[in-house]
């Protein structure tokens, strides 16, 4: 949920974000992938039917930053700033089982991963590290692709606290 970066900040950073990502993908990321420098764990892939283990995914970036690659469509407070992490809820909250699921491109290996944006629920809003990115987000009449919805559904309480971004698979191109 949410939209409220400082807007001037958002507009300049948004531009910077887009241009830097483009150049990064076109440059270093592509070079690495193209050059085959990063081995993508054939063992893990074999043992899970083509899906790599999440722990073996090459990573880069700051998980407490909106610009972190797996936050490409996150909307809300980053749980890592609320006592949790990008994959776990803060103490005393409950992770929503119901959510929406999208994909984000990992700049290190150039692959798209499936991301589950489960909200953490049952306490008042965290209020820290507000992020709003919308790659692949679609309007609310496509709820399976929408981040404006309070996804604290199927939980004891619908109070929204913060959002996680959990890698649940490798996208099939």
């Amino acid at each position: 949920m949410g939209w409220l970066d400082k807007v001037s900040e958002r507009s300049t950073r948004g531009l910077a974000r887009r241009s830097s990502r483009r150049s990064w993908l076109a440059g270093m990321g592509a070079a690495l992938v193209g050059g085959g420098v990063i081995p993508v764990l054939p063992v893990a892939r074999a043992s899970s039917g083509g899906q790599p283990q999440a722990s073996d995914i090459p990573d880069s970036g700051d998980p407490l930053s909106c610009d972190y690659w797996r936050h490409c469509a996150i909307d809300g407070f980053l749980c890592g700033c609320c006592g949790g992490t990008e994959t776990s809820c803060p103490p005393g909250t409950e992770m929503s089982p119901i959510t929406w699921i999208g994909t984000c491109r990992n700049p290190v290996d150039g692959k798209s991963y499936v991301i589950s944006y489960n909200d953490c629920c049952g306490k008042t809003a965290c209020g820290h590290c507000m992020c709003n990115r919308n790659e692949g987000d679609r309007p609310m009449y496509r709820p399976d692709k929408n981040n404006d919805i309070n996804w604290c559904l199927g939980t004891k309480s619908t109070l929204y606290h913060c959002s996680t971004a959990i890698i649940i698979g490798l996208a099939v191109e």
Partner: peptide, 15 residues
């Protein structure tokens, strides 16, 4: 309206 739009900028607003 905003310039330099792309996938994911639909909530960015505009100047």
């Amino acid at each position: 309206m905003h310039g330099h739009g792309a996938e994911g900028t639909h909530k960015d607003g505009g100047d």
